[in-house]
Design a protein around this nucleic acid. Structure first.
Ligand SMILES: [Mn+2]
Ligand SMILES: [Mn+2]
Ligand SMILES: [Zn+2]
Ligand SMILES: [Zn+2]
Lengths: 129, 129
DNA sequence: GTATATTTGCAACACAGTCGCAAATATTAT
DNA sequence: ATAATATTTGCGACTGTGTTGCAAATATAC
C-alpha cells in the first residue's frame, strides 16, 4: 500500500487512523474537512484524533491545509511543493488545488518580502460550467 | 464628519455604534478584527453589535473582510473596487490591502470561471524589513 | 513476551460568529 | 415638539471549529 510507505518515509507510526485517513486523502482530488473525513471513514475515529492526524500530516509535509472563505479548513495531499492557487466552486462546493498556477512571481511593493501565500479563487469549475 | 456622509450615502441610520466604528476604520490603514475594534472604541459596544455593524458595512460596500490564515476575520475600509492582494506581516501582525496588485488577470485552466478572489500574502512588511 | 513511547478517546475548554427577543434609540409623520 | 413606527442594541443562549489534559489503548523497541 502506498499509505504505509508514506508513513514509513515520514517516520510516523502506523496506526489504523493514520492509514485510513491517508488512504482517503490519496483517493480524493478535492480537499476534505474534518467532518467530511469523519463521514467517509469506514472506521470510527474521534474528532480530536482526526485533527491531530491532519496536523501531523501537515507538519510532515504529507498534506496541506486550504483556507476556506466560509467554512472549516480543508485538507489535501500535497503534490506540488510550491505555493499555488486554490479554487472553490460555488456550485458543487469542491475545493481543489490548481498546481498549474504558481504564485511565486507576484511583485510586492518595495520593502515587502514574501514567505508564504494563500490564494483562493472562487467561481465555477470545469464540471459545473 | 466623513462618517456621517458615508452613512447617509448608503442610507444607513446614524447610530453611535456605526459612527464610532466607521470613524475608527477610516482612521486605520490596517485591518481590524471585532476584538481589536472593541478594544479601541471609546464607547461601550456589544460584540453582537460590532459584528452586525461590520456585516452591514460589508453588504453596503463600505468595508470588506479579509481572511486571516490564523485568526478571526479582519475588516478594512474598501478603497479599491477590484479584487486585490492582502498582506500579513509576520513580525508586526498587521494585515493590509495592497491595492497596487489587481488579480483579475490570473489565468485559470480551461472551463474555470472566476467570480471572486481571496489572496493573502504572508511575509515581512516595509516597516519591519 | 515485556518495557517504553506514542497515540487514542473522551471530556472539557476557548473562541468566532450568529440569532431571538425585549428594551432602547432613531426616523417619520403629525 | 410629540407621538407612532421602524430600526438597532444588549443580553443571553447557542452553534461550530479547533485544541488540550489525562487515563486507557496500542504501537514500537528490546
Ligand atoms: Mn494546494
Ligand atoms: Mn483589501
Ligand atoms: Zn463545481
Ligand atoms: Zn510588519
Amino acid at each position: 500500500m502506498k499509505a504505509i510507505s508514506i508513513l514509513e518515509h515520514h517516520q510516523l507510526s502506523r496506526t489504523e487512523s493514520r492509514m485510513e485517513i491517508l488512504e482517503l486523502l490519496l483517493n480524493k482530488n478535492v480537499a476534505l474537512s474534518e467532518k467530511e473525513i469523519k463521514d467517509e471513514l469506514s472506521i470510527k475515529c474521534d474528532r480530536a484524533t482526526i485533527y491531530r492526524t491532519l496536523n501531523t500530516f501537515v507538519k510532515s509535509g504529507i498534506a496541506h491545509s486550504i483556507i476556506n472563505n466560509d467554512g472549516p479548513l480543508k485538507y489535501v495531499i500535497k503534490k506540488a511543493p510550491e505555493d499555488h492557487v486554490h479554487f472553490k466552486c460555488q456550485v458543487c462546493g469542491h475545493i481543489m488545488c490548481l498546481p498549474q498556477i504558481i504564485i511565486d512571481k507576484i511583485e510586492l511593493p518595495d520593502g515587502f518580502t514574501r514567505t508564504e501565500s494563500n490564494f483562493l479563487v472562487i467561481g465555477t469549475c470545469k464540471n459545473c460550467n
